[in-house]
C-alpha cells in the first residue's frame, strides 16, 4: 500500500452464520480487496457471529461492502460510519 495519507478508516458491523471458515472468509475479502483490518471484535451469540471491524484503505468502502455482502455466510452488514478521514489512526 502507498502513502497512508489517502487512507480512510471505516467501521463495519457484520453478522455471520457460525460456520467454521466464516472469519477467514471475511478477513480474506477485506485483505484481497485492498483493506487492512485495524481492529476486530468477535462475539458468538444465539444468532451466530457478531463482528465489529475497523478497516482502512484507499478504495471504495461501498464496493467492499457489496463484496462482503456476497459471502454466503454473511447475514447482515451495517456501516460504514466513517471514523476518520485523511490520516490513519494507527500505524
Amino acid at each position: 500500500m502507498t502513502s497512508s495519507a489517502d487512507h480512510k478508516t471505516h467501521t463495519l458491523s457484520c453478522r455471520m452464520r457460525p460456520e467454521p471458515a466464516a472469519l477467514e472468509r471475511l478477513c480474506q475479502v477485506a485483505r484481497i480487496r485492498g483493506f487492512r483490518i485495524e481492529e476486530m471484535q468477535v462475539r458468538t451469540d444465539a444468532d451466530g457471529l457478531a463482528i465489529d471491524m475497523v478497516l482502512s484503505g484507499q478504495r471504495s468502502i461501498d464496493t467492499l461492502r457489496r463484496q462482503i455482502e456476497k459471502l454466503h455466510t454473511v447475514c447482515s452488514l451495517r456501516g460504514p460510519e466513517q471514523a476518520l478521514t485523511g490520516v490513519r489512526q494507527s500505524a
Partner: peptide
C-alpha cells in the same frame, strides 16, 4: 482444502 480454496469458490463446505 477449505482454507486453501476460499478465494476461488463462490462458497464451500467442510461437512461435519
Amino acid at each position: 482444502v477449505l482454507g486453501m480454496t476460499l478465494g476461488i469458490v463462490k462458497h464451500s463446505y467442510l461437512v461435519t
